[in-house]
């Protein structure tokens, strides 16, 4: 199982380490050609205007849309969530517009308001045990389409959800040692690979 991590900018090495710890192989993807042959794609946290712009300039939009239409699971954390969303409120850079969610950037305020807290995520292993979630200038999902499965929510809104082959998290599971969110994504990848 090979998981590509979009490596234009941001927390790339952290995701690669998590993938290795889960027993899969991770590769950094810097070119659209690197999308060929991967079983899953992670779009990491970084600066969303920067990553959106580089995705567009390096011609990533058509091939990512293509692999996603063929069912390849795509996991977006923080910036990745913004870039995957169909709708982003306010000023923003280029987006892929794939997952049926509406998103607000920097929904919790500036860096001094960034925080970590325990959350409960439905659907992951030992789902009743809290997951330490790190929110850094984080976005929030304001609304989601009828097909979207909400996996975690806090007072301010939805912070993790799944829409078909898209998994999105407003926080950074790659910054804590807890592997459960990455394991959930790898399960999505495995299920698709093993499907007839």
């Amino acid at each position: 199982m090979v998981i590509g991590v979009l490596a234009l900018q941001g927390a790339v090495s952290e995701h690669l380490e998590m993938i290795e710890k889960c027993g899969a192989r991770g590769i950094g993807v810097k070119r659209a050609s690197g999308l060929t042959g991967i079983d899953g794609l992670i779009i990491p946290g970084g600066e969303s205007t920067t990553i959106g712009r580089l995705l567009e300039e390096y011609g990533f939009f058509p091939p990512i849309t293509e692999i996603s239409n063929s069912g390849v699971p795509i996991f977006g954390t923080c910036t990745g969530l913004i870039v995957l969303a169909k709708r982003v409120r306010g000023k923003h850079g280029p987006i892929l517009g794939l997952a049926d969610i509406e998103v607000e950037r920097n929904a919790f305020g500036r860096q001094v308001d960034s925080f970590e807290r325990d959350i409960i995520i439905s659907g992951i292993e030992s789902e009743n045990e809290p997951f330490r979630a790190v929110f850094i200038r984080a976005p929030v999902v304001l609304s989601a389409g009828p097909e979207v499965r909400v996996m975690a929510r806090i007072d301010e809104g939805i912070i993790m959800a799944r829409d078909r082959n898209y998994l999105v998290a407003a926080f950074h599971p790659e910054l804590t040692p807890d592997l459960r969110v990455h394991q959930y994504f790898l399960k999505m990848v495995r299920e698709r690979k093993e499907a007839p």
């Binding site: 490596a7 234009l8 900018q9 941001g10 927390a11 790339v12 090495s13 952290e14 946290g45 970084g46 600066e47 920067t50 923080c78 910036t79 860096q111 960034s114 925080f115 970590e116 790190v134 929110f135 850094i136 200038r137 950074h172 910054l175």
Partner: peptide
Amino acid sequence: VKRGLAEMLKGG
């Protein structure tokens, strides 16, 4: 949270 923001700036 503080070190995390720096991680998000990597490669930039």
